Structures are given as structure tokens and as C-alpha cells.
Amino acid sequence: MSMPHPARIHGAQPALRWLIPSLFALGAHAALAQSAVTLYGVADDGIAYVNNSLGASRTYLRAGNLSTSKFGLLGTEDLGGGLKALFQLEAGFDMNTGANSTSGLLFNRQAFVGLKSDRAGQLTLGRQYTPYYLFLGPYTGSNWLTGATGAHPGDIDGLDSSFRINNSVSYVSPTIAGVTASAQYGVGGIAGSIERGQSLSAAVRYAAGPIGIAAGYLKMYNTELASGFDSASTASIPTSAVNAGYVSARSIQHFAVAGNYTIGDLVLGLNYSNVRYAPGGRSLFKDTAIFNTYSGLASYNFTPAFSLGAGYSYTLASKANGIRSAARYHQVSLKEAYNLSKRTTLYALQAYTHANGQTLGAKGAAQIIDAAALAGDSQNSTPSSTSNQVAVIVGMTVRF
């Protein structure tokens, strides 16, 4: 097809000369209007005091308390007919050093791409949180009291944002009559075995009016290439004094139920979780280790700016692997928050944890030790040398 000679365009009527560039501008504007990329994040830092951190009191700056310090990019493109393409890239960082939260990982928190349909739901691929956490976490102390001091000791049940799954495919259904469901599969990718290194998760949630309740399941398989929970596995898990003796497990299974009931400015919540560390050929223990956690919480907005939250949790471990007195963890958590604006909040957090009984040390069944206290998941690597630990954090967070 031959193109019109430039002279013919320039010689066209004045209205046509105006219309041609206007159409190009209109088309470019429409293309831009159909897609959007948002930069977002949180900057959070505070002063922390711990009465016993590996045997001594400690005062230090701790980032990511009320909310994890992070930044990310969220993008969507409208493909028409109720279908959108989307992506999310999210990185955590330490406010006090500028370092990545996880060494060697740029987008350590999330990195995925996918499609979302108004009628069919959402399908995404990449490094993602589990349906177990995404559906249950908002109803637990990790949300209402913060993960730093409100998560159950060591985040043993993964209801804080500790677990992420690499190489995962996730699906979230549309919400029908208040019910939403989700499933995820982490592809192990180990030659000769589908099971090794894979992860499975599913959850369902009902939310309508003052009631919100969710149930979820998560099972993470080790690659069993070494005695620990290998980095080649799709799941990344935290290690603390609570689970250090069991991270060589062949698989780790979680099941939990959580719910909230809202009465005006008051939110009440209950949750239960069951965690099982199953041994394998390279494990440093021989009997399945079980942790059951029961907890309750309350949060009240005294004014639009000021809120207070409180919670209690009780975690009971099993007696297996030569342990005569099972480990028990009692934890009380408090949170006070004052919003200076919609984006800026001053906060104070407190937690007291008491531990008794026995557990396994890092050497597994060959090292039976007294259970150590640690507040939430803020002291995973620095538990108390006694059965009690108190943590107090005062800080500020700014969202953008």
C-alpha cells in the first residue's frame, strides 16, 4: 500500500491537518490510561529494649516493627473485557544500614506476574506469599499487634510474613457470597522427584458484615540435599530457638483457623494452629514434632487517631525425641498507636514471653535443652538465657 506524499498531507484542508496529529495524541493518551504502575513502600524504625538478649540486656535501633520497611512496584494493564495483566515487585530493607533484608535477594518479599479476571479470578507466577498466610494473617496478632511482638514465638506457625514460596503458581477465586478460595503450588524442580522441594498451600475465607473467618493449609517439602532446610527448596522459613532442632525435617505442615468479630470500634479475634515437623533420612531427629498454638486478641479504636491492642498466646510442643517435659510458651503482647496523619504513625509495642519445658537444640535429638523465651519474631536469633523475656519498642512509621 502506498503512503500519501507529505506534500499532499500538508496541502490538505485545515481541519484535516488538525485532525491527524490529534488522533495520534488521543491514541497515545488512551494507551497510557489503560495501564498504571505504582511505587509504594513503608519506612519504619524504632528504639528497642530487651531485658535479656543472649544473657544481657540490650538497647538498639530496630527497623520494621509496626510494619516491615519495604518498597515496591505494582503494575496493572487493562486488557479489556474485565481482564487485566499485573505484576508486583517488593523488596525489604533495613532502615539503619540500608542493606537488603535478605542477602543476595533484591525482591526478597515478592516478585510475580499474572492475569486477573473479574469473572475467573487471578492467576500469578513467581515468588509469592502463601494463601495460608494471606487469608489467615489479617485475623491474627501479626496484623493487629504487629509481627515484631505480636507474632507467636519465633513465628512458629507462619502467620506473620516469614514464609515465601519460590517458583510458585497461585490462584485466587472471585468472591461469591462473601467466600473466597485460593490454592498455590511451588514447583520443586528437582530432577527425578516431583515431591522434593515442592510446596502446597490452600485457604478459604468468609467475610461479611462484622464476621471474618479463614482456614488454611501449608505443606513445605525439603529437598533433603543436606541436613538443614535447604535453600534449594521452594519454601524459605525462619529459624529460631523454638524450631532450631527441627529445621532438618523432611516436610513441615501447617493448619490453622482464625477469625475476627467487629463490634463498632472493637475487634475481637481467636485463632488456632497446628504445625508438624516430619523427619526424613537426613533429619537430626526421629519423631514427628508437633506445635499447637491457641491465641486471642482485642483491638479498640478510642478515637480515629488512637488505638490499643492486646493479645495472649499459648504454644505447646510435643514430648517426642527423648523430651520428658514438653516445651510451653506463654506470651502477652500490647500495642499502642497514634496516627499523626493517614500515612504517619507513632507506636509503642510491648511483649512478655515465658517458656518452660524442653526442646531440641541445633544438633537435633543429640541436644536436649531448656526451652528459651523469645518475644514474637523480633528476637529469633537472640533469645533469653532464662525462661523470661521482655521486649519494648517505641518508633515511627511512614507509608508512601
Rank of each mutant, 00 (worst) to 15 (best):
L74I: 05
N222T: 02
Y171D: 06
I263N: 09
A33K: 15
V275N: 01
G75D: 09
S240N: 01
L346M: 11
L308T: 13
R119Q: 13
L136W: 07
V275I: 13
S385F: 01
Y185N: 10
G55C: 03
K70M: 11
N166R: 14
G245T: 03
D377W: 00
A202F: 04
A177H: 07
A148M: 03
A305N: 07
W144G: 00
Y206N: 07
G27L: 13
L39M: 13
T353P: 03
P138K: 12
A28H: 12
V247F: 02
K70G: 04
K84P: 02
S168M: 04
I176F: 12
V37F: 06
Q88L: 13
P6R: 13
Q331C: 08
G55P: 02
A232S: 14
R343V: 06
V247E: 03
A375I: 05
D94N: 15
G216L: 07
I368W: 02
F163D: 09
L19V: 09
L74S: 14
T102Y: 01
A48W: 03
F107S: 10
G150N: 09
Y338R: 09
F255Y: 12
R250D: 12
A48N: 14
A289D: 10
A36D: 15
Y132P: 02
L159A: 10
K70N: 14
H10F: 10
G186C: 05
A36E: 15
A36H: 15
S325D: 11
G178M: 05
K335L: 15
G126W: 01
S387N: 14
L134I: 11
F107K: 11
L225R: 06
A371N: 05
N222E: 05
G322V: 09
L74M: 10
Y133L: 09
A208E: 14
G186I: 08
A320G: 14
R17T: 11
I20L: 15
Y185R: 10
L268C: 03
L32T: 14
Q128P: 07
Y206P: 08
F229E: 06
A33V: 11
Y171M: 07
S142P: 01
V247H: 00
L316E: 13
I9C: 05
A232Q: 14
D230H: 06
N243P: 03
N388K: 08
L340M: 13
L115E: 14
G121W: 01
G80M: 10
A305S: 12
S283W: 02
N108W: 02
N301P: 00
V37A: 13
L266R: 04
L360V: 07
T59N: 06
G98H: 08
L105F: 05
H254W: 04
T223F: 00
G269V: 09
Y132T: 06
S240L: 00
F400M: 08
T315W: 04
R58A: 09
V242M: 03
S233H: 03
Q331N: 09
